[in-house]
């Protein structure tokens, strides 16, 4: 569903992405991992069109993303930190997004998530009054309610209580079973291990290791993903 060909991105003097080639297909949760500054977020933002690549090509469902914006109707994006217009109410925000997006909006999913996160009581509250966790829930809601084919989730469970966190993870798995593609980043390796199928490990703007979760743990000869990743990173530091 998402194809990245020879992608380069430079911010001023710093080259953040150095020739990324990647193909992600539906029915899987792919986790993009890597140390800080390795280019995870930049890669996701490039696919979303938030960052404009220096060179290379990105195809989403066969459509080149450069100069196009309509392909984003296939994508749901949950940013790391959710910030909303502070003077709108939650209801207005939802209506606004439905207004401008329409396509794929599924009221059933919306209901399900509103109930799951217990968001009903915030509907008429101004967004600036919401707590960080609640904002995160809102962010998930507006991502899932459009039932997109591709999900980009940047640290989706940060700030969520265990109940909400499990609920969200269930939802993620549910999407994958429906053949959707979920791309996520996370610092919680146990979480990645729990829900991800594939891992793309980025290092200094390049793909260092890529593969299934179990394979990577096996290759590293470690007990779990966290240790496997730690080993990978250590190796790279010494290299």
């Amino acid at each position: 569903m998402v194809k990245v060909k020879n992608l380069y991105k430079r911010f001023g003097k710093v080259e953040v992405l150095k020739g990324i080639n990647l193909e992600l297909t539906g029915g899987k949760v792919s986790a993009i991992l890597g140390p800080n500054g390795s280019g995870k977020t930049t890669l996701i933002k490039a696919v979303l069109g938030l960052v404009i690549p220096t060179s290379g090509e990105i195809l989403v469902k066969g459509e080149n993303v450069r100069k196009s914006w309509s392909y984003r109707k296939y994508i749901g994006y949950m940013p790391q930190i959710a910030v909303f217009p502070e003077n709108l109410t939650l209801k207005e925000l939802i209506n606004m997004l439905i207004d401008i997006r329409k396509e794929g909006y599924n009221p059933n999913i919306k209901e399900e998530i509103v109930n799951g996160f217990k968001l009903e009581k915030y509907m008429d509250k101004k967004l600036k009054t919401l707590s960080g966790g609640t904002k995160q829930k809102v962010s998930a809601l507006i991502t899932f309610m459009f039932d997109p084919e591709i999900y980009f989730l940047d640290e989706p469970t940060v700030g969520l209580d265990p109940i909400s966190s499990s609920f969200l993870k269930d939802k993620i798995r549910e999407q994958v079973e429906r053949g959707r593609l979920v791309v996520l980043t996370s610092h919680i390796m146990s979480e990645v291990e729990e829900i991800a199928d594939d891992i793309v490990f980025l290092l200094e703007g390049q793909i260092y290791v890529q593969g299934k979760v179990e394979e990577i743990i096996q290759q590293a000869g470690e007990r779990n993903l966290e240790r496997a990743i730690a080993k990978l990173m250590e190796k790279s530091y010494n290299a």
């Binding site: 938030l50 914006w69 392909y71 940013p79 959710a82 910030v83 401008i100 997006r101």
Partner: peptide, 16 residues
């Protein structure tokens, strides 16, 4: 102030 929200909007199918 609306930088982050612009980000959110940009991830929606709307042109810049």
């Amino acid at each position: 102030d609306s930088r982050n929200f612009i980000e959110l909007l940009l991830s929606q199918p709307i042109n810049r």
